[in-house]
């Protein structure tokens, strides 16, 4: 390589390294703004400023969904299998809102410690399979434990 080419190569590598470092530092500094939601563990640990609106994400705890007759109000528990947060919501839930599956709620925690949501989104995970496969899995015919709180559906906290 001629010295000029070598110089330009180092320049290009330098640009990439510089932008990568600057970008990495910026993303690290604004970590809480980049993340789409906080999980119950982060909420319990007090990572969210009190009274602030934020998104809460996790799994809908099995058997926790309670519907009030005569209104849209729904109460359920969002869990990350370490900590739980109770949620109240009074609008129409998305079709894929199900127990034991992912959910992201937007709102704030009230005085009683209940998360009052004004928007609830369903989060589906990365598993795709035909319905027959899930049925056989539920009967315990496969090694793949779908009823386990699989770490993957929790969008793994690094």
């Amino acid at each position: 390589m001629t010295p000029n080419r070598r110089k330009r190569l180092y320049l290009v590598l330098g640009i990439v390294a510089g932008v990568a470092i600057a970008g990495g530092l910026a993303l690290q500094a604004f970590r809480n703004n980049v993340t789409f939601f906080f999980d119950p563990t982060q909420v319990v640990a007090g990572e969210v400023a009190e009274g602030k609106r934020f998104r809460l994400g996790g799994m809908v705890k099995a058997g926790s969904v309670q519907r009030t007759s005569g209104s849209l109000e729904t109460r359920f528990v969002v869990t990350d299998f370490k900590h739980d947060v109770s949620v109240r919501f009074d609008k129409v839930l998305p079709d894929l809102f199900k127990e034991n599956s992912g959910v992201v709620a937007h709102g704030r925690i009230d005085a009683a410690g209940v998360f009052v949501a004004d928007e609830v989104l369903a989060k589906h995970d990365e598993n795709y399979m035909p319905p027959e496969v899930t049925r056989s899995l539920k009967r315990g015919e496969s090694r793949l434990g779908m009823d386990e709180p699989s770490a993957s559906t929790q969008s793994a906290q690094p």
Binding site: G57, H124, Y128, A156
Partner: peptide, 26 residues
């Protein structure tokens, strides 16, 4: 992005270290 931060978007189904999480027929 889906590994580094909590996201609404699903994690990868195909390009992952532990193999695809999508049935072969799909």
């Amino acid at each position: 992005s889906v590994d580094w931060w909590n996201s609404l978007h699903q994690a990868p189904s195909v390009m992952r270290a532990d193999g695809p999480t999508i049935s072969w027929s799909m």
